[in-house]
């Protein structure tokens, strides 16, 4: 017997905590300072530890510049999928359906595209059509300039013609399933996420937004969830160096009545 639809507006879907690992030639780049980790450069050991610690998702960004290194990365993705039991996104150097297919086949849950989508926005449509929107994350590096929030590429060095919010709307309409938004103004400063740009993007699209850049304290995560409406918070060094252990962060957010998976 089918039951009539019962509507429930109470949020139970949790906010996500996402450590990000930069990978070069199959090794993690930024130093890590984990008591439990034997080889700080081994992405698998680090990823398994994060999964055990309760990270909700992981992001691996390949910053290798060479083709040889790219092959190493695909092999690494396969190894990651073999070892961890939480979802993960991979990004870096993906500019075609073929690039994405290799990573999907290796077990990645999502791919992230950045400057390749800026160069050729239709890539987003193609990826969404071929693999489904849930597979397509578009990373946006945004910087506040005299012209407002402007999309940048090349690690935030090169401005584009795109306004951040307009670009977010465009990739949403092209089928992106999620936005990974990094503010170049706050990235690395540990003064808090960029609430203004995050809120502007969250309000402009109906897909999840991962806030990135600026996390230095547990309160910063609370702020970006409550004030900007971000769906997830991403950080790298504060997790890698054990400044904010993931379990402690999640306990804190739970105590602050933010929906969190414990």
């Amino acid at each position: 017997m089918t039951v009539d639809l019962t509507f429930n507006t109470k949020p139970t879907l949790t906010k996500r905590i996402i450590p990000c690992l930069d990978i070069k030639d199959g090794r993690t780049v930024k130093g890590v300072n984990f008591v439990n980790i034997r080889d700080a450069g081994d992405p698998i050991e680090l990823a398994v530890q994060y999964a055990k610690d309760g990270a909700d998702e992981l992001v691996f960004l390949d910053i290798t510049a060479t083709n040889e290194g790219r092959k190493t990365f695909a092999a690494l993705v396969l190894d990651i999928a073999r070892h961890i039991n939480i979802p993960f996104t991979v990004g870096g150097g993906i500019s075609s359906l073929e690039d994405a297919a290799v990573l999907l086949d290796a077990g990645a849950d999502k791919v992230s595209v950045n400057s390749s989508a800026v160069r050729r926005p239709k890539l987003v449509d193609e990826l969404a059509k071929e693999f489904g929107s849930q597979f397509v994350v578009v990373a946006i590096d945004s910087k506040l300039t005299d012209d407002g929030f402007v999309v940048h590429t090349h690690g935030g060095k090169k401005p584009t013609d795109f306004n951040t919010v307009e670009w977010a709307k465009e990739i949403y309409s092209r089928g992106a399933g999620e936005i990974l938004l990094t503010s170049m103004n706050t990235d690395g400063a540990k003064t808090g996420f960029d609430i203004a740009v995050t809120k502007a993007v969250v309000d402009a699209v109906k897909i999840p937004v991962i806030a990135s850049g600026g996390a230095g304290t547990k309160q910063h995560f609370k702020e970006v969830f409550e004030q900007a409406g971000a769906d997830a918070g991403l950080a790298a060094s504060i997790f890698h160096f054990g400044e904010i252990p993931v379990p402690e962060l999640k306990q804190y957010l739970h105590a602050q009545e933010i929906p969190i998976r414990l």
Binding site: F7, T9, L13, D56, Q134, P208, D231
Partner: peptide, 25 residues
Amino acid sequence: LNVRLFNKDWRYGNSYLKVPHMGWN
């Protein structure tokens, strides 16, 4: 039984539903 599409006009907390439903629930 039938499989139906989440409606983006449905309310969820203080905002509208984001579709796909993606994450931990």
